[in-house]
């Protein structure tokens, strides 16, 4: 028998020459043999930062297409498509009322592939909202918010709000009529507590609506300040928050013992029997 390294292969240092060097380099990155044994298949997952989000083995029910409908993964896929196309759009976009619209026109008519990237970003944004809502419905109707998954459901609701916020804040950026008036509606909704304070005759003293509207827009109208605020929300604050939230969401799935399945044993918190 050969001496085995901790990764299950012959120690590279023992092989000389160029071939040995190349093997050494390869093995320093891919630290396992060909994944055709249970051991190496496990190592693929646990020795890779991106894959170790998965457990090494997964319950068959979690793979049933008719169970998850792939919707959670699709939500994440859309998030990734949006992040990549969004960064490309950022390279050309300038968040100022003087330039934003022209930059979008450039993307549409001048920059090679610009229109495709913008289309991808726009349609994927709609897709993500739809898929996240459907994912929530799948989780709900399969009763997957129970048995230790209560908190992950709440994390999901936060992700839903972030998804809607991302989509909505992006709506203003092209600075066209559609953007301007849709966001004006939103801002008027933010100002709507004046309905109550007006009816009570106390707007003068406690203008809650006006305050929230000014907080959102940085002024009383949708203008340059509003555009910058929406830009920062759309390109920095909300994507970061969503990325962190998705991380928590995935981590909790692992902590909650993988996906829900029929006939799973009820288990309470802290290992206590319910």
């Amino acid at each position: 028998m050969m001496e085995t390294h901790s990764t299950g292969i012959k120690s590279e240092a023992e092989i000389g020459g160029v071939r040995g060097l190349l093997r050494h380099v390869y093995r320093s990155v891919i630290r396992h043999g060909y994944p055709d044994t249970p051991r190496n298949r496990s190592l693929v997952i646990i020795s890779n930062l991106f894959l170790h989000i998965h457990s090494v083995r997964v319950h068959k029910n979690s793979l049933r297409a008719g169970y998850t409908l792939g919707l959670g993964v699709l939500s994440f896929v859309f998030f990734i498509i949006l992040a990549v196309t969004g960064v490309i759009l950022m390279v050309y976009y300038i968040p100022s009322p003087d330039q934003a619209y022209d930059r979008i026109k450039d993307l549409e008519f001048v920059i090679p592939g610009g229109r495709l990237i913008r289309n991808l970003h726009r349609w994927s944004a709609h897709g993500m909202v739809a898929v996240v809502i459907l994912h929530m419905a799948r989780v709900f109707y399969t009763g997957s918010y129970k048995n230790g998954r209560e908190f992950n459901w709440v994390v999901g609701i936060v992700l839903l709000v972030l998804t809607l916020g991302l989509s909505y804040s992006g709506y203003l950026l092209p600075w066209d009529q559609l953007a301007f008036w849709a966001v004006t509606i939103g801002a008027n909704i933010a100002a709507s507590p004046v309905e109550l304070t007006d009816a009570l005759g106390i707007t003068e003293y406690a203008d809650i609506g006006g305050m929230t509207k000014r907080l959102l827009l940085g002024g009383n109208e949708v203008g340059a300040d509003a555009l910058i605020r929406f830009y920062v929300l759309h390109c920095v604050v909300l994507p970061l928050a969503a990325a962190v939230g998705i991380g928590v969401h995935f981590w909790r799935i692992r902590k909650d013992g993988g996906l829900s399945r029929p006939g799973e044993k009820a288990h309470g918190h802290n290992g206590e029997a319910p």
Binding site: R41, S42, I45, H54, V56, R57, V58, N61, L63
Partner: peptide, 10 residues
């Protein structure tokens, strides 16, 4: 427990 390896199926 009726599980399969994550690699390559998942």
């Amino acid at each position: 427990e009726d599980t399969v390896p994550t690699w390559p199926t998942v």
